[in-house]
Design a binder for these strands. Structure first.
Lengths: 225, 225
DNA sequence: AGCTCCCTGCACAAATTCTGCACAACCCAT
DNA sequence: ATGGGTTGTGCAGAATTTGTGCAGGGAGCT
């Protein structure tokens, strides 16, 4: 989980960073609104901790601009109570706020709560094609409801194929996607995994799910039924 | 609502006591760290007001010890600004702090805020999955109602896993979450704790609660029944 | 000081998965 | 039909990942 921390006060920035890093998050910092927007685009954080009282482009403005292009959860840091009213009044789509001074524990608790909510919202990690269901987070695959025990590599192959159903994926593409690009694994190796994967699918009665297109590549088949 | 006030200065103790009593709280006092711990155990206060600069066992130490067995909210009283850094930096789990000199009104306001928050957090501190119940506040775990004696690390692991049931948590993620990020604990160490945790679960008949997904991580299992 | 409990991590064993060779089977254009 | 290129299969050693026995060190309690 990556978190973008935006505050102009270096001490507070450090405090928050250290706290969050201890809590197991990856942290990126920005010291003003402009930088915040740049980083938000480039780093695609999972959450933004945003100070309201930024110089120049203030926090509320940054929030509005962020919301224009992303649904990233936002947690505001506010110094004074009257700032809270502005946040609430403006309905900017902030997810929560914490008033300074705050305790690290509190901050982490709030962040966890937000992330939990937003991950509950976005259960879109499940790929589905025909009777095959692939849950990336749980590393689990079900066929007609029955769980399939796949190894990491097998699952990786299946995911690639399911990401573009009905489209043909070439072998080099697959290999690049599974191992990094420019890896030197033999073509036969891919075949081995492919075989195991097919065998496991076949045990559930879907042996023909992955079809070979000779000389071109592989694809998650056009479903028979 | 019962509040424990810990300070070695009798005048300040009285001031705080009277202020709080006027605000409608029941007050218990202690003049040193040792006494504070004793009272905290016996009286189970709803909040502790703790002076940082105590003789002998200092406030930070008291806080740490309290945290070892309870989640009671803690409000620090600090004399100097540099003490604040220590509180925040150490991430002891304090909920707020007030610098001396402070106004009685300020103190009461902070206390109200903390109590409000902690009651709002309220009953959501219990994680449950299958027959396993984890009560973060009480540091206790029950399986089919039977209490399980877990060490701090074991509990930490279990909590991480239960926070995202059915999802896989990688070993690095677990290690980052339990110790700070970027810590250098051996992989085997995690295994050791894991083994102990599993053994204890097995004694209650749920040895398979935590399953291993080879090469990926661990997960709080898909429940058998 | 002595005792207990917990954390940490080494050395080794066990389990699981990955890789790729040798060869057979297959597809398609000529 | 035939030959060259492509894909599937049996198999086994290599490599990685995970589990276990065990022990030293340190914190806390009496």
């Amino acid at each position: 989980m990556k978190i973008l921390v935006v505050d102009d006060d270096p001490r507070l920035r450090d405090l928050v960073s250290i706290t969050l890093e201890r809590a197991g998050y990856q942290v990126v910092t920005a010291r003003d609104g402009q930088m915040a927007l740049t980083h938000a685009m480039r780093e695609t954080p999972d959450l933004v901790v945003l100070d309201v009282g930024l110089p120049e482009l203030d926090g509320l403005e940054v929030c509005r601009k962020l919301r224009a292009r992303s649904d990233v959860p936002i947690l505001f840091l506010t110094a004074r109570d009257d700032e809270i009213d502005r946040i609430l009044g403006l309905e900017l789509g902030a997810d929560d706020y914490v008033t300074k001074p705050f305790s690290p524990r509190e901050l982490v608790a709030r962040i966890k709560a937000i992330l939990k909510r937003s991950s509950a919202r976005g259960t879109a990690t499940v790929l589905r094609y025909g009777p095959v269901e692939l849950d990336a987070a749980g590393h689990s695959v079900r066929v007609d409801g029955a769980a399939l025990a796949l190894t990491a590599t097998e699952l990786s192959i299946l995911r690639q194929l399911m990401q573009t159903p009905e489209a043909i994926v070439s072998r080099p593409q697959l290999i690049d996607a599974i191992y990094g690009a420019g890896s030197a694994v033999a073509d036969r190796t891919l075949d081995s995994h492919l075989r195991n994967l097919r065998r496991k699918l076949a045990e559930q009665g879907w042996g023909s799910a992955i079809e070979t297109v000779h000389g071109i590549g592989l694809r998650m088949g056009t479903w028979p039924g």
